[in-house]
């Protein structure tokens, strides 16, 4: 979760997209976990999925679902039509009509879903990470099965983030409260992936180098693997913080990496994580939960905070300005390019 979402849509979708937004060539989607200081029974006015054009819109359009904690989302853009999936505290919700209507497609057995992701080539296959383990659907999210084979105990089944390899869709890495786990059979079984560090909060794969994995941890900084999880090293030159909730790659330059977390502001590396520079200029809230890079213009970067809404940068993350969603706890940001060629 909290990864860059680089979703390039099929041209056929433009007609569909135009029905909702006339200029839907590129949209900035943001999910909110909740507003500040919420407890059950209160109105959750800012929870759900929002979107706007990053260039032309001044206001955000609410896409649903209200009264829910939305931890993250994914959007699949096959030729048949757009499918949105939300990871929420009441399970997985899906919309197949551009957010007009939604259905809770999981049942009571799935709760507090932290991350959801479609197989990039087959929307029938959907994965979800939860505090109770890993789940998989092979019918587009209508039925789910828990896949915890090899994940033993509450710490191992606490999965805030996972990544499906973009070169091998059966190879999945999961961040857990225990260590990093990997599955080579599409979630059917799991084993430890070589990093014996607990409290993993996020895991990402370099979109241009499948061997490079990065994890952000609670209290233990950033770790890198250049061997697809076999060996790991801590990279902390220039890093003065220890808790990271998000790691994001520039899709146009494999050496450029962004990271954020508790009180961190934005960290940026331009040499593959060897050295880091910290940027806070214009950030009213330094607790960063998610970062996304525009797939077309990588100088445009977006950051979600954990109480201060969304911030945007037009100079590669060096300076920031507020883009809205007052007090929103932002869980995930994606820049969706509907003008793209495929779903990846």
């Amino acid at each position: 979760m909290r990864k860059i979402a680089l979703v390039l849509g099929l041209a056929v979708l433009l007609a569909f997209a135009a029905e909702k937004a006339p200029a839907k060539d590129k949209r900035l989607y943001v999910s909110t976990f909740r507003t500040s200081f919420h407890h059950i029974g209160m109105k959750i006015s800012l929870s759900g999925l929002f979107n706007k054009s990053p260039e032309s819109d001044t206001t955000w359009q609410f896409y649903g679902r209200p009264n829910n904690y939305v931890y993250g989302f994914d959007i699949f853009l096959p030729s048949q039509g757009e499918i949105m999936a939300l990871a929420t505290h009441t399970g997985v919700h899906q919309s197949r009509d551009g957010g007009k209507t939604w259905k809770e497609t999981s049942d009571w057995k799935m709760t507090e879903v932290h991350s959801v992701q479609f197989d990039r080539t087959n929307s029938d296959i959907v994965y979800a990470g939860t505090p109770y383990g890993f789940y998989k659907s092979v019918d587009g999210g209508h039925n789910w099965q828990q896949k915890n084979n090899g994940l033993h105990g509450p710490d191992a089944t606490y999965i805030p983030s996972f990544v499906v390899s973009h070169v091998d869709p059966d190879h999945i890495f999961a961040a857990t409260e225990d260590v990093v786990y990997e599955s080579k059979d599409a979630g059917e079984s799991w084993r430890k992936a070589g990093l014996e560090i607990p409290h993993i909060r996020v895991i990402e794969q370099n979109p241009q180098d499948a061997e490079m994995l990065v994890v952000g941890t609670e209290d233990n900084g950033l770790y890198f693997s250049l061997s697809s999880g076999k060996h790991w090293e801590k990279r902390e030159d220039g890093v003065v913080h220890s808790t990271f909730y998000t790691v994001t790659f520039d899709p146009t330059n494999p050496e450029v990496i962004y990271a954020g977390g508790f009180s961190t502001g934005i960290y940026k590396s331009v040499d593959g994580g060897q050295k880091w520079q910290n940027y806070i200029n214009g950030l009213d809230n330094l607790d960063i939960s998610t970062i996304a890079v525009d797939p077309i213009d990588s100088q445009k970067v977006y950051a979600g905070s954990l109480n201060g809404g969304v911030f945007g940068s037009e100079d590669g993350g060096e300076t920031w300005s507020w883009l809205g969603i007052d007090n929103g706890q932002i869980s995930e940001i994606k820049v969706v390019d509907y003008d793209g060629e495929d779903n990846e």
Binding site: F37, H38, H39, Y158, F262, S263
Partner: peptide, 15 residues
């Protein structure tokens, strides 16, 4: 609770 550890206290004491 599946909350951010560092931010949990504000969440809890709100209610």
């Amino acid at each position: 609770f599946p909350t951010f550890n560092k931010l949990c206290m504000d969440d809890i004491v709100s209610s």
